[in-house]
Design a protein around this nucleic acid. Structure first.
Length: 88
DNA sequence: GTTGAGCGTT
């Protein structure tokens, strides 16, 4: 299970995000999705920590924390497969 | 400005 981070500043980059997360553990994966049709940032991201303990630490330390001028929402991520229905 | 990809079908 990865971690979901929402309400990010749209200008935040992967390396900036990773720099923050590294302070609480080992970042294994990091993903900042971009809108597939427009190519713009979406203001949220996903990360994977080395273990559950670090995961909990990141969530408890960063959820609701103000960063880059906005309060991050940090939580356990949901499975990717659960896609809302698209027309196709 | 809050849950990732890919393919118009894996």
């Amino acid at each position: 299970m990865g971690i979901y981070i929402g309400n990010l500043n749209y200008d935040v980059t992967e390396e900036e995000l990773k720099a923050v997360l590294t302070a609480y553990g080992t970042v294994q994966k990091l993903h900042l999705p971009v809108d597939r049709e427009t190519g713009r940032k979406r203001g949220f991201g996903f990360i994977d920590m080395a273990n559950d303990t670090e995961e909990e630490t990141v969530i408890s330390e960063l959820d609701g924390a103000e960063w880059m001028g906005r309060q991050m929402k940090v939580n356990k991520a949901r499975p990717r497969e659960s896609r809302p229905n698209k027309t196709w």
